[in-house]
Simulated scan of single mutants.
Amino acid sequence: MNLEKSQKRIAKQVKKGFQGYPLISIVYYGPNESMATKVIVGFTAEEGAEMMTETFSTQTDIREDTVVQTTIIKIIDRSGAKSVTMDERVQPL
């Protein structure tokens, strides 16, 4: 899957809003607001359940990494997530 298609699929899921559990949350981290070098993808099976996380890091902007973005799509698909949230801002490391 190419980068643009992956980003569009993620954005489409986020746009739907909260639809219930399971929930995937995506948070980007980086040295500044214009570059994200780390992403944490969280999975919550049900309300009140502990969140499981998967972390990915790169030296370049991770939002432009095809492999990582495709992996996030696979996590969303395989988890059967009803909701996907994403913080639009890059959080400081």
Rank of each mutant, 00 (worst) to 15 (best):
R9C: 08
I10L: 03
I10E: 10
A11P: 04
A11S: 12
K12E: 15
K12G: 11
K12C: 00
K12D: 09
K12P: 00
Q13C: 08
Q13P: 01
V14E: 03
K15P: 00
K15A: 09
K15W: 12
K16Y: 09
G17K: 07
G17P: 03
F18G: 05
F18T: 08
F18W: 06
Q19E: 07
Q19K: 15
Q19F: 01
Q19C: 00
G20W: 00
Y21S: 03
Y21Q: 13
Y21W: 13
P22W: 02
P22I: 05
L23I: 03
L23N: 06
I24E: 00
I24P: 07
I24W: 05
I24D: 07
I24V: 14
S25N: 14
I26P: 05
I26W: 12
I26A: 06
I26Y: 10
V27R: 14
V27K: 05
V27H: 05
Y28G: 04
Y28S: 07
Y29I: 02
Y29E: 04
G30N: 08
G30L: 03
P31M: 05
P31E: 10
P31G: 01
P31S: 02
N32M: 02
N32P: 04
E33G: 02
E33N: 05
E33L: 04
E33S: 08
E33R: 07
E33K: 04
S34W: 09
S34H: 08
S34K: 11
S34T: 08
S34V: 04
M35H: 09
M35D: 00
M35W: 06
M35N: 07
A36D: 11
T37V: 12
T37P: 11
T37W: 09
T37Q: 15
T37L: 11
K38T: 12
K38M: 14
K38V: 15
K38H: 10
V39G: 01
V39M: 08
V39C: 10
V39H: 14
I40F: 13
I40K: 15
V41E: 03
G42R: 12
G42I: 12
F43Q: 04
F43E: 10
F43K: 13
T44E: 08
T44I: 12
T44Y: 03
A45E: 09
A45S: 01
A45C: 02
A45W: 00
E46D: 07
E46L: 04
E46S: 02
E47P: 01
E47L: 07
G48Y: 03
G48D: 01
G48C: 06
G48K: 07
A49F: 13
A49L: 03
A49M: 02
E50G: 07
E50W: 00
E50V: 14
E50C: 04
M51P: 09
M52K: 15
M52N: 09
M52G: 12
